[in-house]
Amino acid sequence: MPNVLLISDRHLKDQALVESNVDAKVLAKVIHSVQEIQLKQILGSTLYGSLIQAVADQIQSGTTLSETYTEVLNDYVKPWMVWAVAADFLILNQYKVTNKGVLRLSDDGAESVSLQELEALKNYYDNNAASFKLRLIDHLKKNSLVTYSDNPDTNISSGSIGWFIER
């Protein structure tokens, strides 16, 4: 399967509260992780693989995406990914694992947020990601784009409220 990112670091910076000076290389790793772990579970491996291949073909040879893939990607996948990537990035950016252990980053002129503040902000992003995930799942089901044999993830829950919304 091609190594394609469905959103760019620029798109994330434009749509979320992520500063323009954040390292694109770090964001790319988080984007890739969210795609491979979370999005693949939502779409199921068949649709996920087809979408990745279609985007790779578009990048490499200039082919156009089908109307179905364009709609799924632009109206559902990208909005969900912005929030899901931002939620993961909040925690990953605050801490770095080094040979001296896990370190919390701070500037000399600024104070780091408390863990409670960081968790509250992450919960905000997680709730938004859950909302976009619900929209994406509803669209996939409505248009019969996933099958139960793909075993897609249809769990809509948020750690911040502990609720499970069955659709």
Rank of each mutant, 00 (worst) to 15 (best):
I52Y: 00
T98D: 01
H32Q: 15
L65M: 08
Q94H: 12
K100F: 05
S66C: 07
G101W: 06
T70Y: 08
Q94V: 05
V77Y: 01
V85T: 11
L39N: 04
N99H: 07
T70Q: 14
N93C: 00
S50Q: 11
M81F: 08
I37Y: 10
V77W: 02
L73V: 05
K96S: 09
D107W: 07
L73Q: 06
D57P: 01
L103G: 01
D88T: 09
I52R: 02
A56P: 00
T46N: 13
W83V: 03
E67V: 12
K100T: 08
Q60D: 14
I59H: 03
W83A: 15
E36W: 01
L92D: 09
V85M: 08
S33M: 09
V82D: 06
F89K: 02
V72Q: 09
V102G: 04
P79E: 06
V85C: 12
T46Y: 03
K40Q: 13
E36S: 11
A56Q: 01
L73E: 00
Q38S: 15
Q41F: 03
Q94N: 14
V97Y: 05
Y95K: 02
D75E: 15
L92T: 12
I52K: 03
L105G: 11
L103W: 05
Q60R: 13
V97H: 07
Q53C: 05
Y48R: 04
Q35A: 08
I59Q: 05
A86H: 12
G49I: 03
A86E: 04
I59W: 00
S66A: 03
L39Y: 07
N99L: 07
I91L: 13
A54F: 00
M81V: 06
S61Y: 11
L103K: 14
V82I: 14
Q53G: 03
D107I: 05
K40I: 07
G44R: 00
M81G: 07
S33Q: 14
G62C: 09
G49S: 13
W80R: 12
K96D: 08
R104I: 11
Q35L: 07
S106E: 12
D107R: 15
Y95P: 00
Y76S: 10
V85S: 06
K100N: 15
L105A: 13
D107Y: 10
R104S: 11
N99P: 04
G62H: 04
T68P: 01
K78G: 04
W83Q: 10
